[in-house]
Amino acid sequence: MSDLIIEQDVMQEHEVRRYFEIWRESVIRSRHTITAVFLKEADSTQSKPNENNHQITAFLQSKIRKTDLLFQLSDGNHWGIFFLQSSDVEARAFLKRIFAILKAERKFQQIALKASITEIRNNTVTFEDLLEKNKQVLTENGQISWSVVEVHDYGVQPIELVKVSIIEQNAIFRQVLESTLNQIVIPHFTLEVKVYEDGYSFLQSDGYKTGHMHLIVMNDILPRKNGLEILHILRHMPNEKKFIIYMMSERNSEGAALNAYEGGVDEYIVKPFNLRLLEAKIKRTFARFWL
Rank of each mutant, 00 (worst) to 15 (best):
A104R: 08
Q110R: 11
R106S: 14
N77H: 08
E7K: 14
K133H: 15
E267I: 07
I81D: 00
F38R: 03
G76K: 01
S165C: 06
L258S: 14
S30Y: 15
N53Q: 15
S30H: 12
S201Y: 07
G263Y: 03
F108L: 01
K271H: 04
N50I: 08
Q204C: 09
M248L: 15
T285C: 11
V16G: 02
N219T: 07
F71P: 01
R17K: 15
N259G: 09
I81T: 01
L131I: 15
S253I: 05
Q136K: 15
Q72T: 11
V270P: 00
I233T: 11
T118Q: 08
W290T: 07
D3C: 08
A257G: 07
V270Q: 02
T57Y: 01
L231I: 04
S2W: 09
K96I: 10
E128T: 14
L275S: 07
L73F: 09
I5S: 04
R65P: 01
D68E: 07
V156P: 04
T57I: 07
E7A: 12
K40A: 09
T57V: 06
G142E: 05
F99L: 03
H54I: 10
Q8G: 13
I245W: 00
Y19P: 04
N252L: 05
D9Y: 13
R18N: 14
E140Y: 12
V265K: 00
Q169H: 14
